[in-house]
Structures are given as C-alpha cells and as structure tokens.
C-alpha cells in the first residue's frame, strides 16, 4: 500500500458516495446513466468473486464489500426507488457494443484460462469503458449538473492515481500488472476531455451543440 493507491481508493469511494448521496437527497436520478451504473455493478461483481477464494487483508475485504453494496444500492435507487425520475429516453447507449468486444478480449488476453481469471480480466476491461453510457448521455443532452461532474472528476482521478501507484510499485517492488495498467491508462484517457472541460468551464458542463 502506498499513498497513491490509498488516495486512489479514497477517491473511488468518494465518487460513489457523491453519486449515491446526490440521488438520495434529491430523490432523483435525472441526468444519471443507469446503464453505466449497472455496468459498474457488473464490474465489481465479476472482479470480487475472489472474496470467496482468497483472503488478502481486512482492508481489501471491507473495501470490496463496501464497493459491491454501494454499487447495488445505486442501481436499486435508479431502477426501483426513484425510477420515475430516470431519464431512460436519453440513456440509450448500446451496451452490447461494449460487452461483446470486452467478453471476446477477456477470453483472448488473460493470465490464466480459468473462470475466475477470465471474469477478473472481463471486469478490468469493462471498467475501462463502463463510463461511456454516462458520457454519451451528457453529450446527448448537452449538459451535466455540477454534482454529476464532481462524481466524474473523482471517478477519473481514482484511475489516474492508480497509474501513479503502478509507477511507484514498479520502481519499489518491480511489480507490474500488464492487463490492469494498459486498461487503466485507456480508462484514464476517456476522462481527459472531461477533465479539461471540468477545469476550464467550471463545475456545470454544457457541451457545445
């Protein structure tokens, strides 16, 4: 554990909590892509199956359970509790265009051809593109509330901090995880355009129409 990794995990947790609290307090999920949130729940589910097979640390176990619980709570709020406010007309990104290539790639490129490893690889690849329905929705409607942009900022910051963590680990431990690093860099690149808008235009984002 190093400071970049810890800051990355905290940033990830903050992002998820910002979104959950926004929906809970406003009793509305307007402007939020339910499809992205289902994909993130799928990411956590397929990645954290090792909760049942290996014990790493109390921190690791607790964080995994928290991420799983919060992601399912978010999906529940969007599709059940506050479904009247769900903007399904603008949440139209075709997720099969993400899922099919990601499933194919995880069978081709993995560390071992076993169910758990393939599912782990699937989760890493899927995470790198899971935000696309949300970014698509913002492009389609041309706007995002400031609280939604804070969510995206912390979510992008999380993977950027993980890159620093990987650089650190490579230099101090000689450790590197090629699949995670390549996917993490791709994932972070998707946020660059957003980061630019966030910094230059301030919180509330309107895309040029």
């Amino acid at each position: 554990m190093n400071i970049f990794r810890l800051a990355g995990d905290v940033s990830h947790l903050v992002a998820i909590l910002i979104l959950l609290m926004k929906i809970w307090r406003s009793k509305s999920c307007a402007g939020i892509s339910g499809r992205s949130q289902v994909l993130f729940a799928l990411v956590f589910t397929t990645r954290y199956l090792d909760l049942f097979t290996v014990y790493i640390s109390a921190y690791n176990t607790v964080m995994k359970v928290v991420f799983l619980a919060l992601s399912y709570a978010t999906v529940y709020l969007i599709y059940m509790r506050f479904r009247n406010s769900y903007d399904s007309e603008n949440d139209t990104f075709r997720v099969e265009f993400l899922l099919i290539p990601v499933i194919g790639l995880s069978f081709l490129e993995n560390y071992a051809f076993t169910p758990l490893e393939i599912l782990w690889t699937f989760s890493i690849f899927l995470e790198s593109v899971a935000i696309m329905p949300q970014l698509f929705m913002i492009t389609k409607t041309g706007e995002a509330e400031s609280i939604t942009t804070h969510y995206l900022f912390f979510l992008g910051l999380y993977r950027a901090l993980y890159i620093a963590n990987w650089v650190w680990r490579y230099h101090t431990e000689g450790f590197y995880d090629q699949i995670a690093i390549v996917s993490g860099v791709v994932q972070t690149i998707f946020y660059c355009d957003f980061f630019y808008l966030y910094v230059t235009r301030g919180e509330e984002i309107r895309t040029p129409s």
């Binding site: 690791n60 991420f67 490893e117």
Partner: peptide, 10 residues
Amino acid sequence: SDNESGKDEL
C-alpha cells in the same frame, strides 16, 4: 507477486 488470483488491488 504472481498475477493469478489473490490480487491485492481493488
């Protein structure tokens, strides 16, 4: 560290 199972990152 090996890459299979027991990954310590989240």
